[in-house]
Each structure stands twice: as structure tokens, then as C-alpha cells.
Computed example of a mutant assay.
Amino acid sequence: MIELGKIQELEVVRKTEIGIYLNSKSDKIGPDILLPIKQVPQDVQTGDEIEVFIYRDSEDRLIATTKKPKIVLGELGVLKVVETTRIGAFLDWGLEKDLFLPFKEQIGKVEKGREYLVGLYVDKSDRLCATMKTNKILTSKSPYKVNDKVQGIIYRINKDMGAFVAVDNKYDSMIPKHEVYSSHRIGDKIEARVTKVREDGKLDLSIREKANVQTDEDVIQILTKMIKNGGILNLNDDSSPEEIKKQLNMSKGAFKRAVGRLLKEKKIQIIEKGIKLS
């Protein structure tokens, strides 16, 4: 049986001037599929089996290719947007015909030149299309444990919950809202640390280091900011978390830990509206 959207081995059933025609060796149901002459391996003979990918050409005809696409059915991949239109976007997936990402399958604003995590599906017209609604394809059975370093891509952002991340383009994870300290966008690739493995297997992530390591970096960031501001920073214990995040891109708790260390080391002193260098 010939399967759309998958890499499979098919038998050469006949040779022509425009290419060779293929079909399933064990179950020849449906029409033979053309492999264009420019992709036909040298010295191939009738009866040989060839590994190909099946998709539809620009005229919606089933066609075979020996090229390996960047994504197949049942898997996820990170693809670049080559064009955006009013009905959707087109992605480079390594084949002659770009992959269509319908507008209804997009999450957030899709921009030309950026890369996004997508899955592959067959639409009602029996055509291959991309979708950014990838959570059903992601798995929660990851090999990672607490404090492991991981890499992933943000596939969805919920302001009330946080940033959803596909670790290794495969494992469902999230950076909780209180851990998101910078302006991330869908499609951003991140490095993070596992802070929790939930009962369902999903991972909680942080883009910050462990508290003691992160405090070292926060201290440097605060001192650098103060030097640029003439030795003064208008933030203190009474400042709102939002204002601290806006100025320093860190949580209020992280700010207080770093300030506490600087006070202990007598590098700063408290003033009426903030802190200043000693």
C-alpha cells in the first residue's frame, strides 16, 4: 500500500522516457506513482525496489521523490517560512514544492524568514499540510531529570501560564510564567534547566541557573546597571516585581538575593529611593 507523507520502499513496475513508475510490491492498489527521470538511480531495472517519499506535485498529482523531506507524517520538525500570504504561509521542507501552512493552523503571527515547529497532516482534500498545533504529537516520556540542561523551541505562549517548549522537538515542556523574564516569541530556540518532572512526565524548565550560580550573574548585572546610571539604581524592596523585571529582567526574589549579597560585601548602600555604589 502506498502511503502519502511517508518514506517507503516501492517496486519499479515500468520504465518510460519521463521516469519510472512505482507501486507497492505486495499490495498493488491504486495508480502507479511516477519518479521523475532526473531522480532515477543509474542502472535501475524493473522489479528493483527504491526508497522514496510520496507527496503531491504542483498539480496535486501523487509523485515520488528520492529526496528526504525535513519532516514526515507523525514527526515534528523546525521549518523556515519562505512566503506568507492571506490564506497561509509556505515552508521550506527540502522538496521542490513548498509545504503549505494554512492560516487556521497557525499560532501567533508567522513571519517570513523565521523558523517554527510544525507537524505534518493530511487535509480533507488528501493533501499534505503543516500545522503549528503540535501538542498532540509531543510526548511526555522524556529521559531528562531535575537539573539536566536541555534545548528546545517555543511552540506556544500563554500569558497566564508561561511558554510551552518542545525539548529536542519531541518532549512537551513549559517555562512557568514566573520563570519567563524576557520577551520570548513563538519560534525562539532556548537553552534551559529542568526544575521539575511532573507526575505526567512533562518538564518544568527555567532559563535561569541554580540560585547560587544565578545570583553571581545577577550581582554583575545590577552593578553594571548602576555604573551606567551614575552609580545609582532606583529600585528597592518596595519596588514592584513588574518594575524590577522591566529594568533588570529578573524576578523580585532574585533581585533581593543579589542586593543582599552586595550589602553584605559592602559594595552598595541603601538610599531613600533605591541603592547606590559605596
Rank of each mutant, 00 (worst) to 15 (best):
P176F: 00
D168T: 06
K202T: 14
E265Q: 11
M174F: 07
S239R: 07
A211F: 12
M226F: 06
M174E: 13
I190W: 04
E191R: 14
R198A: 11
V167F: 09
K159I: 09
M161E: 14
E199D: 13
V259T: 15
K202W: 05
I232G: 04
S251Q: 01
K245P: 03
A166W: 08
G187I: 02
V167D: 13
R208K: 14
H184S: 05
G187S: 00
E179Q: 01
A258V: 05
S240T: 14
G230P: 01
I227R: 13
N229G: 07
D172F: 06
D200E: 02
F255A: 08
S206D: 01
K245I: 06
R198C: 10
K170A: 01
D160V: 03
K225Y: 12
I227M: 11
S206R: 02
N236I: 02
N169Y: 09
P241A: 04
T195I: 10
D188K: 01
T195K: 05
I220S: 14
N212H: 12
V194R: 02
K189T: 10
I190H: 03
Q269S: 10
K189I: 04
I175V: 14
T224L: 13
P176A: 03
G253H: 05
H178A: 08
R185V: 08
V165D: 14
S239Y: 07
T215V: 15
N234A: 13
V165S: 11
K267C: 08
S182W: 10
